[in-house]
Amino acid sequence: MAVNKQNHKSSSRLKLLLEKRHIWFAMLSIAAVLAVYPFVVMSSSSSAPEIVPPGGSHNGENVEQPIEFPHNTHVKDNGINCMYCHTYARRSKVAGIPPTSKCMGCHKVIATDKPRIQKLTEYWEQKSPPPWKKVHDVPDFVHFTHEKHLKRFVFDQDFPVENVKEVCAFCHGDVENMTVAHKVKPLNMGWCKTCHINNGGPGDCWACHK
């Protein structure tokens, strides 16, 4: 099962390194593998045999957005799929913020009396999209792609796309209960790496570092 698979992978990687006589790197790798070993064992004893969602938590800052966008109203109350608005997630490295025209597609008629919608309408009429602030960011030296993660965890698993929010929640947390998005996962290297080890993601530095 997962534990055997993981151990096998680790040892073959080690062999590869040794063959290439990279002594420094090999020694460091031995240390690295030993360090992550307990995680491998622990995660393998958890429930899901194939996918191990990342753990960890982080209490992000409260980001003040130009409009206090209520994710909960959209996702929980109205059942809108994440990828309806963040439409590029399956096609690009970035998920994308929806164009203002998409908001207005509904809000020309829905909830037009609410102050937040009135503010949105103002932006629309001034022909400038709201200056949304970035909440989930990775450093510039990191190459992250939504596209391949969705392929791995949704499309390759025949995971029902209507429930995609469960997969999004791996990294973005329980967005359906948030108003504006709040960073609840650390999104740092150790956290990413743990998940890569647990779920067979690439271990090569250049897979993620650019």
């Binding site: 290439k20 990279h22 002594i23 790197f25 030296f141």
Partner: peptide, 28 residues
Amino acid sequence: DAATCEPVCPVAATYHTPDGLNAQVYNR
């Protein structure tokens, strides 16, 4: 493939990728 730059890096910022490239990890 047997790069002389790789084994001398004290922090393994340069290493060999599974694609046969000498990688340089800038943040490392």
